[in-house]
Computed example of a mutant assay.
Amino acid sequence: MSADIDSWRVTLPCTRAEAEAIDAADDLAIDAVLMTTEEVEDDREHWRLDAYCEHEPDAAMLAALTALVPSSTGTAPTVTPLTAQDWVTMSQAGLEPISEGRFVVHTSAHPVAAPAGGRAFLIDAGQAFGTGHHATTSGCLKMLDGLVDRRFANVIDLGTGTGLLAFAAAHLWPVAIVTATDIDPAAIVVTRENMAVNGVEAIDLIVADGALSDAIAAKAPYDLLIANILAGPLISMAPEVAAIAAPRAAIVLAGLLETQRADVEAAFTACGCTVEAVDRRGDWSILRLTAGDARYVPTRPIDPKGRDGWALDL
């Protein structure tokens, strides 16, 4: 092999359901960076899995990757040697800058200047999800931008991923206390690195499962809550999210399909919240709700072992 080859890419077709399961998994024990991509917009069947690894994949690696996407059974993985380019840059080469409201989000491969009166964020693809290119993340940016005329003093981003949504909140409300949490310690490391790259300061970072951490509860109530995760965790976490919300707090939820919206809305309305706005983007929906007039008190103790595990920011 050429001495210029220093990394490898394995590509397999997959379905959206398989892509979501990969994105939601906490630890797949595969020594590769996994990325899933929508090949055909709003098509459930035509997605792609790319695995970037630093060593030539052996039979065991190829078998493990194929097992993640059963729909590809019978399709030989495409193995591509990559020349001496940084493999993270290769993984994000197709991620063009996106613009939402006063924000532009870009990768190192596609630098762009901030818009007049706005803010550009450099978010590279890597261990944590949330580059802004998924409809849920870009939709949250737009939803937050629409709240700019309101005043918030205490903001929390649950499942922060790369930290992007917390950064946007810190820009829109510079005097607010902003907290970013994630169940995955690696995501908090990535967020801290992205803070340094983007010159973002004074965001409190917490490793926590859901909203039950003592560190999160000690800073409650929050008047703006952001949770871009998945529908199942949103439903099961509704009481604990509502419990840390200030009366009349704004709550932005994402990571749910339109077909799941009614169930998510029902879980939060049962906790006294009211749906104020919906931004539908293809099959995905972003919700903005308002907490009740009084602080919500759960009707029964919340057992974190009894609710669904939750995943990184989309």
Rank of each mutant, 00 (worst) to 15 (best):
A29T: 12
G210F: 00
E193T: 15
A250R: 13
A270H: 09
A186R: 15
A250H: 11
I177V: 03
V178T: 14
A242P: 01
V175W: 07
V197H: 02
R281P: 06
L224H: 03
C271Y: 14
L257E: 10
V104E: 02
A125I: 11
N194K: 01
L122M: 13
P304D: 01
G130P: 07
H46S: 11
D23K: 06
I235E: 02
S2R: 14
L312Y: 02
W173D: 00
G210I: 00
L289F: 04
A125K: 01
D26Y: 13
S108P: 01
A231S: 12
T15C: 05
A59W: 08
T83P: 02
A218M: 05
G132M: 09
F121T: 15
P97G: 08
G132H: 01
W173E: 01
V33F: 11
P77N: 06
A125M: 05
V241M: 14
H171T: 15
A32H: 11
T269I: 13
G101R: 00
A120G: 14
R16T: 05
D308P: 08
T66I: 02
A63V: 14
D182Y: 07
A168Y: 00
D58W: 06
A254E: 02
M143I: 10
V264A: 14
K305M: 07
L312K: 05
V178D: 03
W310T: 06
A218T: 04
P221V: 11
L205G: 04
D58N: 12
D157T: 08
V69E: 02
G117L: 10
I203A: 08
